[in-house]
Design a protein around this nucleic acid. Sequence first.
DNA 1: GCCCGGCACGATAGCGTTTACACGACCACC
DNA 2: GGTGGTCGTGTAAACGCTATCGTGCCGGGC
Lengths: 334, 334
Amino acid sequence: MAITIRDIAREAGVSTATASRALRRLHNVDPATIARVQAVADRYSYVVSPAASRLAGGRTGSVAALTPYLSRWYFATVLSGVEQVLQDAETDLLLLVAGDPGRPARTPPVRRLSQRVDGFLVISLDPDSPDLGGLLALDAPKVLIGTKWPGVPSVSIDDERAARLATQHLVNLGHRRIGMIAGRQGRSPFLAERARKRGFETAVAWPVPDSSALECGYGDFTVDGGETAMNALLAQPDPPTAVFCMSDEMAFGAMRALRLHGLAVGTDVSLVGFDGHDLAGMLDLTTVAQPVARIGAVAAQMLLDQISDASEHKQGEVEIPTKLVVRSSSRPPT
Amino acid sequence: MAITIRDIAREAGVSTATASRALRRLHNVDPATIARVQAVADRYSYVVSPAASRLAGGRTGSVAALTPYLSRWYFATVLSGVEQVLQDAETDLLLLVAGDPGRPARTPPVRRLSQRVDGFLVISLDPDSPDLGGLLALDAPKVLIGTKWPGVPSVSIDDERAARLATQHLVNLGHRRIGMIAGRQGRSPFLAERARKRGFETAVAWPVPDSSALECGYGDFTVDGGETAMNALLAQPDPPTAVFCMSDEMAFGAMRALRLHGLAVGTDVSLVGFDGHDLAGMLDLTTVAQPVARIGAVAAQMLLDQISDASEHKQGEVEIPTKLVVRSSSRPPT
DNA sequence: GCCCGGCACGATAGCGTTTACACGACCACC
DNA sequence: GGTGGTCGTGTAAACGCTATCGTGCCGGGC
């Protein structure tokens, strides 16, 4: 039915084996032959069947991205960076949502995927998470984004330091009662979240008279969650004068809560977010900005390199710098 | 290396053919046999190789979603609805960004994809778009989201009506000089955008003395774009007192522009958005709310039905109702 | 008693690639 | 002038499934 490599080979006057080799640019074929075969392939706009290729031991030409969320800004933006690089490399992107702490875990689909893809991109999730079902044991190329694991290449930021500096900024402004809005209660499945918590605690424990961390709110990284968490913080006997939020979206929710309480952001309560969301500027939110799309792009490129270069030159752990962008949501206490 | 259907068959005491049939629940196998085979498969946590299955004429167990953007809120949210349904059906999601009017068009990858997936989900894009490279000609199950095409199942809203009602709302408030912020200049590649424009024009041309549409701004459906477009509208000799924005994100940008001009939203200039973005509530934006994630879910389910039921009962065009949510960004002119 | 139809299942031929393995040609070397 | 080593290519056997066809069996109608 469809046109096969056999047709191309015949048309180019070579065997299917040579055609196959030529199309994959293996180094032991005559350049002239490569050109001839490629010309025929182009003429018929032929592309190898990924299914057959995979079955015979070749590549599938696609990679999987595992992400805990899809509609949260950070994840969607990382993925858009990933997608762009992959599309340029004519590699397909298989998307899988796994490890959302609020979603019932299904049978880990990594097994199924391992037959379908050449490599894995894991966003934020700890690679030993049961939701991933033995991804680590799989001898397949992989790159982690926003998290780290010994021996696995990764692209991430220094979450602890970034959180520490952001909180320190609040301390420096003179705040002494500082709250935090994290993701979910209990031990977070995200290394980054745990690191941010440590950074916050370090900064608050700084030798400053009277400074203290307040009870922590949990906002599930959503706007609504942030609002709920802020309400909880405000309901305390001695509410904070400043709050560090682990994502901009939660900070937006916190803003809304403050407004509904008749409190002014920056004046009554200072806020610092995390991510560098599109809307942070427009809402005057002080935030830890990170080049989110670029992080995705870098990781995708690393994965592609790892897939094509059989040489195991794992590029190790790449760390992307962040920047605290100060806006008017954080001001000295009044 | 890996465990094959042959192993399962042997272990269950049947032929590979029967094992294959049993695993696919074909109706002409003894239920007892199905149970036995399935039990063995479960015990070894065996899953059929999609590549082999596909090659032999079966299904691939995955569908492609074609979307013009990935990080814009609407698209990410639609996709999250899609993903949830697909994951429940153990179907993989192949993501492809195509047709972004601001991105250079590559060779249309639909051809390549058609070998990889069992069906297509097309978001917002007109199905005859050259970026899709003959999708329509492909005899494969497909469902359109947010757009329509004769003979192709789709899930969409009544964009023209929604835009008309939103604009009418501004007219009813007493506004007479009403602007619009659309996506991109020229003929939009999105049916929905064209319909919204018609709705707007109809409402403004309503027999109301002196009402008039003003020059249209273009914001590329982004926050920054919305800001730029609003600035352009404000630079006109007789700027509008109200603006209809084709997406909430552009409305957010417009809000920012207004604020930088020292104008108050709702008081000096009214704003109506479109989508029902998470943050619309928090920013008090009047908007046309649509159940975005559910739209994705419904479409995904339709596609799955179409794939499994060989019977060509195309479910036709599903229309999801929208609701104008009035908030304080739209008020009578002062 | 015979034949037919339906049912559950088995044998086998591909599906379109890749990858040993083999082969001939050509060159270089002692 | 053999021997050995690249280099470019061809032959054919997988790869793990599904589809087609065929077989044996059982029950029912004449």
